[in-house]
Design a protein around this nucleic acid. Structure first.
Length: 479
RNA sequence: GGUUCCGUCGUCUAGUGGUUUAGGACGUCUGGUUCUCAUCCAGAAAAUCGCGGGUUCGAAUCCCGCCGGAAUCACCA
């Protein structure tokens, strides 16, 4: 049987890291089985609709490398894929329920319902609408909401992640199927759509766990087979045990892209948050995830979101891409992350800088802070020199003479490559009788005035002879 | 409050009755890689397996109770 999964977001804003996983897992499952993944836009709440949100969702998925076989843009044989365009389908299924006496139009005004609710709260009894079911129900027509007529009983079902679940009759209620504006609720629409679209594996967050018995009742009343239910545990806030949501400052996935997180790292981190293949592997490519993913190894407990580990993984991926795919491959990801000073520089120059600095990057945006001195002369800060823990014991005269000796030595070099420079630096150590910590610190600070930089000979090579000597001279004069 | 789910190092996790002195990863700490920062390498600290009973020769693993946390209880999804 072909596996068909779906990701069904509502276009109410960006996709945040708390809920992308409900797109990643269905994708992995569909791809590994040669099945299909459907993207469906659940836009039945007109009040919460956000212009452009659909495009943002599509863009986010695309960035992550998640493509869909049916849905907006690509089309498909089960469309339309926007719920707002499927009204007639919902109404047909609704009429079926009415004919069977399993749904009724509810004329009760909202204020009255509030009263019922309050009454129950005051008496500290659970509020179940079916206890207040109106006796006299009109013909269903636009402007009146349609409710399911619950037949309370026990439900036992199997969840591929949570195992065998059970719920008593007290959770079954007369939930709204169609709102008074004619739009279906999620509760009804997703059941109809999943069935019509042939979804075989339903993956969704744990927040739907407690309403599942009500869904089961609808499948039953509609006499349709339900998909396998796969409940994904929550991703928790890093500072507590609460579900991570937008209100907790859950960042959008695109925000991480802007911060220089690689899509590969994002996918890797999220996929492994709450899932593992039982081995000790930590770094997974998308293809490896597709190959090794399995639903029965998804955790049933929530996992805390840990940005520090994401950062580590991102560093791993930066290095992995560089060493396995080459400097150019990594460079292709860096366009938006260079400092303003690099604007006029050639790709060739930036590639050279990247090649010696890449293993220091945690995020691509670190480039902005870490590479500025390659592209423009740094401001001379003598305090930085004089307060250095190795240099502060040297007098100004000594510093100046060391610089001049170094300049002379370097100026006489015939070629300017890393090996030649390392040799020259080693010779300088012997000639000046200084420790590496002293001489190298001096030169390093003088040419960069940065808190850190790549190996000295590499930095000098990339900077070039002219720039290196000019900066050393400037510092020698300033002392 | 009702209902439901969850509970192994600080965090993510391995573990499905004995090879477990509970393994790995992030983080932390220490040392090494001729300067810095990072990488990399080596090492350390870190979990009475939520608690209490039981079953068993033997339990993180099975059963019961309790405790703690979370989710949900909308004409939102």
């Amino acid at each position: 049987m072909e596996i068909i999964t779906r990701f069904a977001p509502s276009p109410t804003g960006y996709i945040h890291i708390g809920n992308v996983r409900s797109a990643i897992y269905p994708y992995l499952l569909a791809r590994q089985s040669g099945g299909k993944m459907i993207l469906r836009i659940e836009d039945t709440d007109r009040a919460r609709y956000v212009e452009g949100a659909t495009e943002l969702i599509e863009d986010t998925l695309e960035w992550l490398g998640i493509n869909w076989d049916e849905g907006p843009i690509v089309g498909g044989s089960h469309g339309p894929y926007f719920q707002s365009e499927r009204m007639e389908i919902y109404h047909q299924w609704a009429r079926k329920l009415i004919e069977q006496g399993r749904a009724y139009a509810d004329p009760t005004p909202p204020e009255k319902i509030e009263e019922y609710r309050k009454e129950c709260n005051d008496k500290k009894t659970p509020f179940l609408y079916r206890n207040f079911r109106p006796t006299d129900t009109p013909e269903w027509q636009p402007g009146i909401p349609l409710r399911f007529k619950a037949e309370p009983k026990e439900y036992n079902w199997h969840d591929e992640v949570m195992g065998d679940l059970h719920a008593g009759p007290e959770v079954l209620d007369d939930i709204i199927l169609i709102k008074k504006d004619g739009y279906p609720t999620y509760n009804f629409a997703h059941i109809v759509d999943d069935y019509e679209m042939g979804v075989t594996h339903l993956m969704r967050g744990a927040e739907y766990l407690s309403s599942t018995p009500n869904y089961l009742a609808i499948y039953e009343a509609l006499s349709i087979e339900r998909p396998k239910i796969i409940t994904l545990p929550h991703i928790l806030r890093s500072d507590g045990r609460k579900k991570l949501g937008k209100r907790d400052g859950a960042k959008s996935v695109t925000e991480y892209r802007e911060d220089g997180i690689l899509a590969e790292a994002m996918m890797n981190y999220l996929a492994c948050l709450g899932w593992n293949d039982g081995t000790e592997q930590e770094i997974y490519t998308k293809d490896e995830l597709i190959k090794h993913f399995s639903v029965d190894r998804i955790q049933s407990s929530g996992a805390r979101y840990d940005e520090v580990k994401l950062l580590w993984l991102n560093g791993q991926w930066i290095r992995k891409i560089f060493t396995e795919q080459g400097a150019e491959a990594l460079y292709a990801h860096t366009q938006d992350f260079w400092p303003a000073s690099a604007k006029g520089s050639s790709d060739e120059d930036k590639l050279k800088v990247l090649s010696i600095i890449y293993d220091r990057l945690k995020t691509l945006s670190d480039l902005r802070e870490m590479t500025d001195y390659f592209f423009k002369d740094p401001a001379i800060d003598l305090e930085l020199l004089k307060n250095n823990k190795f240099l502060k014991k040297l007098s100004e005269a000594e510093l100046e003479s060391l610089l001049k000796t170094s300049i002379m030595k370097l100026d006489n070099l015939e070629s300017w490559d890393a090996d030649t420079l390392q040799n020259a630096l080693n010779e300088l150590l012997a000639e000046t009788d200084k420790k590496p910590a002293e001489l190298f610190s001096l030169i390093r600070i003088a040419i960069s005035f940065a808190p850190f930089s790549p190996a000295l000979n590499l930095t000098m090579e990339v900077l070039g002879k002219e720039t290196t000597l000019a900066r050393l001279n400037a510092v020698a004069r300033a002392i």
